[in-house]
Design a binder for these strands. Sequence first.
DNA 1: TTCCCGAACAGGAATCATTCTTATCCAGGT
DNA 2: ACCTGGATAAGAATGATTCCTGTTCGGGAA
Lengths: 164, 164
Amino acid sequence: MASHSHAPDVRAELDRFTRACREQGTPVTHQRLAVYRALLESPGHPDAETVHRQLRPEYPTLSAGTVYKTLEMLEGLGLVKKVGATGPSRRFDANRHPHHHLWCVRCHSLTDIELDAGRAVDLPADLGFQVIEYTIQFSGVCAQCRVRGDAGLDPDSGAPTAQP
Amino acid sequence: MASHSHAPDVRAELDRFTRACREQGTPVTHQRLAVYRALLESPGHPDAETVHRQLRPEYPTLSAGTVYKTLEMLEGLGLVKKVGATGPSRRFDANRHPHHHLWCVRCHSLTDIELDAGRAVDLPADLGFQVIEYTIQFSGVCAQCRVRGDAGLDPDSGAPTAQP
DNA sequence: TTCCCGAACAGGAATCATTCTTATCCAGGT
DNA sequence: ACCTGGATAAGAATGATTCCTGTTCGGGAA
């Protein structure tokens, strides 16, 4: 929907997953494939419960525990990442391209964005921190919420004032 | 220790808080001041339970609910922010200077860093996203864990992480 | 200062997300 | 098709957070 939805090659990713499992002797089960596929096909960054709910029609006996365990296992393989959301439940991200996040303080949507990676952000070396990767989280108001136009939010306040 | 200045003027912040409360007719209670002070004095980004534990000796009757409510109220005032951590509990940040985060994937410490980035990171205008602020989260291994060479403990909560 | 009122508080129950436990079940090799 | 170890389903247990209720207290008025 949003501007640059980078559609992942689902089949290729599932193949990669299958290979990774085989390599380390881990069984490739329907459930695991289903969970990973659901995540790959999700436009946003669903939490475990959302994945579970999405799959229930197709796999009526799929248990929540399996979803949680599979997501953790996928994270261990480096195929998905937890994204640090401020909401009540953890969200997962199967987009393996380096990318950043747009967090709408109004509707709590979380959208991927791929900025031109030409410029890297560097850290002072004296910190001794070894960077594996970095993600920029932009907080603000998404296009839809701006169009919808509830009160103009002034950037100085910084406070969402999301009181119902 | 480079740009890692971590000394908010506690008294000034508490004054600001008091004024903000008075302005909107909200009572300034000992509990609220204590919670905010605890957060201002915490080097890291404690979760609600850590704040509660820290304050219990001084305020033996302070209840967890009050800590949660106060943190939420402080967020509403724009004085603290939730930080999107991937751990089990939410963490809070009373550092109101624009800053970024170093997340250690080993010990789960979360450290502030102020990159004097003269240049802002820009977003393509056609996204229609109105940025209020942005935070860069660097994931990697902190200096202590690199020296230690293995998994450590979370310096904020003191809770052992995952592995025995 | 003391009195009063409404909002905040403590304590604990309830809810939500996540992890753990245990008795089956199945993927993949033989 | 048969075995077997790891995976699964179901639900109990845990942990974090929110909700509820009777009591207490901040701070304006007398």
